[in-house]
Amino acid sequence: MKKTILCALLMISTCSVMAADLTVNLQIAGEKGALGEAGSVMISESRFGLVFTPNLKGLTPGLHGFHLHQNASCAPIEKDGKIIPAGGAGGHFDPAASNKHGTPWGDGHLGDLPPLFADMAGNATQPVLAPRLKMSDLKGLSLMVHAGADNHADHPAPLGGGGARMACGVL
């Protein structure tokens, strides 16, 4: 019995050393930079992929596009004479150069995550699973919440039609 308990404790402690959780603080994105705190997202590794557990507030109720972006920046940029909040994050994380927006379990951008759901009070707390991602994929990226829903296709709107960049955090 003691041997069984000791083995179980060793397995648990080994698992916790293998992959530490990562917490990312997100800020509301504005034309002049961060407008305030949106909350945080805890990222943990499971045998099924990465689990993103949000603790966000101040979002519009409903579904929101949720993505990893290619640069570790949430700074606004100017493009075609227009200021883009959190534009410094670049495009969706796509290390395989698929150039295709798709489902989190498909063959599109590796940074395509399941959508976030914000309740009627604007809080997002429901975890989402990214089955193709590992913790080692995250270095040098940013995490983005978009203003609208994402249909995980490039039709009828490009990049899933997720809308403006609403909240951003650097990993």
Rank of each mutant, 00 (worst) to 15 (best):
I77V: 15
G33P: 13
I84Y: 07
E78K: 07
V41H: 04
L113C: 06
K100L: 15
P114W: 00
G91M: 02
A96Y: 05
L59R: 02
A34E: 14
A34S: 15
L113E: 02
L110S: 07
F93I: 02
G108F: 02
E78P: 00
H109N: 15
N99Y: 12
R47M: 12
F52D: 07
L68E: 02
D119A: 07
D94W: 02
G65K: 04
S98Q: 10
M120H: 10
K57W: 03
I84D: 03
C74R: 01
V41M: 06
G58K: 05
A75E: 14
G87T: 05
L116A: 05
N55C: 11
K57S: 15
P114T: 05
H92D: 13
K82L: 06
D112Q: 02
L116F: 09
S98L: 00
H64G: 11
A75V: 10
D112S: 14
L35S: 13
I83E: 00
N71A: 12
D80A: 06
G111T: 13
I77T: 14
L116P: 13
H67A: 15
D80L: 00
N55K: 14
G65I: 11
L50Y: 04
G39E: 08
A121M: 13
G122H: 06
A89C: 13
G90Q: 04
G58C: 10
G102D: 05
M42L: 14
L50I: 12
G33I: 09
G81K: 00
K32M: 08
I77M: 05
L68Q: 02
E78I: 13
I77Y: 01
L116M: 07
F66W: 03
A75N: 14
V41K: 01
K79T: 07
L113T: 06
L110K: 08
G62E: 04
H69D: 05
A96V: 10
D112L: 02
G108T: 06
G106V: 13
A97I: 12
D80T: 02
G88Q: 09
I43F: 06
G65P: 11
D107F: 08
S40K: 14
P54M: 04
T60M: 06
K100D: 11
A38R: 10
L56A: 10
P114D: 04
A86L: 09
V41G: 08
L113V: 09
P54T: 09
S73D: 11
M42K: 15
V41P: 08
G65C: 05
T60R: 07
G87Q: 02
G90P: 11
K100I: 14
G33M: 04
D119I: 11
L68P: 07
D107G: 11
C74M: 06
G111D: 10
L59N: 08
I77P: 07
G65Q: 06
R47N: 12
G36M: 10
G49C: 01
